[in-house]
Design a protein around this nucleic acid. Structure first.
Lengths: 154, 154
DNA sequence: ACTATATAGTTTGATGTCGAACTACATGTC
DNA sequence: GACATGTAGTTCGACATCAAACTATATAGT
């Protein structure tokens, strides 16, 4: 499904450059994010908070880890930091003794609101540099690649 | 220069999704890279070797760090690993007592050749998933963003 | 019910990143 | 030439990532 005609296959150098560019942009934007975030909040921590705010809390660590494409160990680490900061509360799952549930605290919702406002504000200048139709062309390509990489991992 | 007309500015949500997608693809592709690389070689280590092979060795650590957009400390760390693996040799700079020069060893060139062959081979399947004209649309957008992020840092 | 297997989460060790403090050397100013 | 400032590289501490080993619990097969 969705096989490419041979005539329009990108050459390997182009693909290499693509991943190279993606890696550098990810690194630079991550660093820029953390510079404007409130207090000690990091990008992974913000990403977890944002996930819980947008899709609802009460999820298990493993669900969050899978949604954000990180390992279980990485999630244990990030949730520990968030809990120590008082932004989330972790409780045992009533129906499964192995599992846990993650809830946002009021403090967590508040800091998320502050963070998202700051991030959106700092992101606005990108709108002066890339056009909407460029973003709309780029996003589906990246989604395709992400899904393929994700599928390939399994 | 290159200012956008207001009519074609992407909304903040789109920009947010863009960076989100870039971050996830970077993470997944980095993990996939390291899984196929020979021995203990990591992606940052490969990136340094690749830089030296393509643009010539004998460069200073700071030049390499700037070219690859990482901090001096990160470069010290990566060069240390490469040197312990015998893939590079570091010598003092004759004309500047503070500085050093980084050369590839024969072993380093050999492992790079092996690594690039493996990586290219493992990357070929992407060509079945994205079309060349998509890549050619995406690359300039990413380059624009990278340059802007880089400029903004200074 | 017992046993084997699968799943949820934690821990560990190696690697990476950053920024800031620190050392050593270079250069420009007076 | 001495001193102030700048630059190259290292070190440190905090955070992140992964994979693999480990614990505890759940479920499935017999």
């Amino acid at each position: 499904m969705n096989e490419n005609s041979a005539a329009d296959k990108p050459d390997l150098g182009q693909i290499f450059r693509l991943f190279n560019e993606i890696g550098i942009v990810a690194q630079l934007s991550g660093a820029a994010f953390e510079k404007v975030m409130p207090g000690t909040m990091t990008l992974p921590q913000f990403t977890v908070l944002n996930h819980l705010v947008r899709l609802g809390d009460g999820r298990t660590p493993l669900e969050i880890a899978r949604a954000l494409q990180v390992s279980k160990g990485a999630m244990t680490n990030t949730l520990g930091h968030l809990e120590r900061s008082g932004w989330i509360a972790v409780r045992p799952d009533d129906h499964d003794g192995r599992s846990k549930r993650v809830d946002l605290t009021d403090s967590g919702r508040a800091i998320h609101g502050k963070a998202i406002a700051t991030v959106m504000g700092e992101m606005a200048w990108i709108g002066d540099i890339v056009q909407a139709h460029s973003v709309e062309q780029v996003l589906p390509v990246l989604e395709t690649i992400r899904k393929a990489l994700d599928a390939r991992r399994s």
